[in-house]
Design a protein around this nucleic acid. Sequence first.
DNA 1: CTAGGGTTAG
Length: 670
Amino acid sequence: MQSLKDGLIYHVQAIKAGFPLTIFTSNQLIHLYSRNGLFREAQKLFDEMPQRNVFSWNAIISSHIKAQNLKRARQLFDSASYKDLVTYNSLLSGYVSTDGYEDCALELFSEMNSLDYGIRIDEISLTTMLNLTAKLEVVSYGRELHSFMVKTANDSSGFAVSSLIDMYSKCGYFQEAWRVFSGHRGVVDLVSKNAMVAACCREGKLEVAVNLFWTEPELNDNVSWNTLIAGYAQNGFEEEALYLFVRMEENGFRRNEHTFASVLSACSGLRSCKHGKEVHAWVLKNGMTSNSFILSGIVDVYCKCGNMKYAKSVHAAMGFENSFSVTSMIMGHAFHGNLVEARRLFDSLAEKSTVVWTALFSGYLKSQKCEAVFELLSEFRAKESIVPDAAILISVLGACAIKAALDPGKQIHAYILRSRIEVDKKLFSALVDMYSKSGSITYAEKLFKRGSDRDIILYNVMLAGYAHHGHENKAIQIFNEMLERGIKPDVVTFLAILSACRHSCLVELGEQFFYSMKKDYNVLPEIEHYACMIDLYGRANQLDKAKELMRKIPIESDTIIWGAFLNACRVNGNTILAREAEERLLKLEGDIGDRYVQLANLYAAEGNWDEVCRIRKKMKGKEAKKAAGCSWLYVENGVHIFISGDKTHPRTEAINFTLALLAEELYQIS
DNA sequence: CTAGGGTTAG
């Protein structure tokens, strides 16, 4: 009686013929119905049974657990005529795997410890509790369980070892996971090996994971492959994930929903709409359209690629709530500038997790809507039940950095300290960046020096900070420091270091860095790096070198390059080349106010008033305007913005009066 | 005698 069909036929025939089912058969049918989601039928059969044994009770209780009805399961548990260790373990695992019932699991476990009628905790109870420990990330409790397992000789089966590895790894104790694994001289079952591979991936140790994977590869199953594919996808090695995905089938392993969920996440990382569509087609062909991980993965790929039309249609056709998909949609809309739609989706949610909030925060930040970020924070804080977490604060600090809002930034920092929010690498970098961009390079530096485990992001933030503040020596110093610590510089690092050279007109040093980035570090210069070099040559009035580099750019020249070149022409006073740059720019970007002003200034500097007139005429027809540069300051909670000759401030008179007084005083002092 | 509870991958 394996299939539901067989079971139903048997059941119907029994009823028709009027012969009673044995307890054994009824128990089997309850399981069969429960396995196939026919919970009501399972309950009906249980209710009609004239006699029941402990297997009947266990079957009906696990049926309710499977239906996620923990309350009903508990009622049946309490009223059960027969109970054994399986009954307890069933309910325990139900509690462990259902969100919100963790306390019940702990309570039940301690109850099991104090029972005196022959029920003793066994290996299954213990591995189930390790599962809970991993979920709650309480290593001290995990250690207690571990030592209890050693004492009672429950620590060496495959189940025990794999659960211990998983627990230590998920609690963040990789070394201890490794110790459990190697405690068996590396001779463990496949599941434990897979758990260790997963632990390595979680830790970012992909090389170790691969080595482990390829030791005794004949043991590997499709979980091993899925684990490694997921590891690559999650650590930014999307190409490798796709490569393994191909190799997996070549090696005769069946792909399943886990495989496709990971591959979709790799496609998202690559922003590859093409690959996303291929996987989407495969999913449709194989009827995997009911798996929420896969569906939200598809939505995410389309969102990341900006194909919101496709994303929307997949999302709308889902037919059930999927918070991952909604989050992707909110991010997708926001990142592609449609903040109204992002907000509408956000508002449509009855329950908003902090992840959804984070999506909207980061969306607003990405669109540089800093005021919206601050307003959203007030809105968030008005909710009583939730408090901002690190992810949200990173967005808020980002908004502070853009606005150079030092005071609000400091308040966030203070809030982090007060609330004892764990400062991970991302949050730490966001803090340093905020201080640096808000003008407080000293404090950024102080904080930076306090960071013990500096990664490339943090170094890049600090480098950019030094570059912007004109501390080129310090920039070079920490560049060397990061090399000494074995951190490989990336495109951002070089942009920062070149920009430090640019601001200080260090042509030779800049050239050194520029040419070594490809040669010594295998980092290909991007358009911004070329623009930076051209600007450096321009400022140093080395137009020939700028011209030479322009010819060598392998990427199609764009407005950034020509803009930098135009500036170089201005410094050099070369109006002939400037004219060429002007034509290229107007062709590339159309009529932009800023550019006309740049051009007009260029010709004006040469005293070439005919050209200035020509540009001015062009400007008038197109209503080109350049946004004026402004200065601003924060007074208490308000920001006050001034442009040259500004009389729009409500207290202009008072301000100018005070200014006059101050000027008078200064005059008297001198 | 045959049944039920636990581990790894998104």
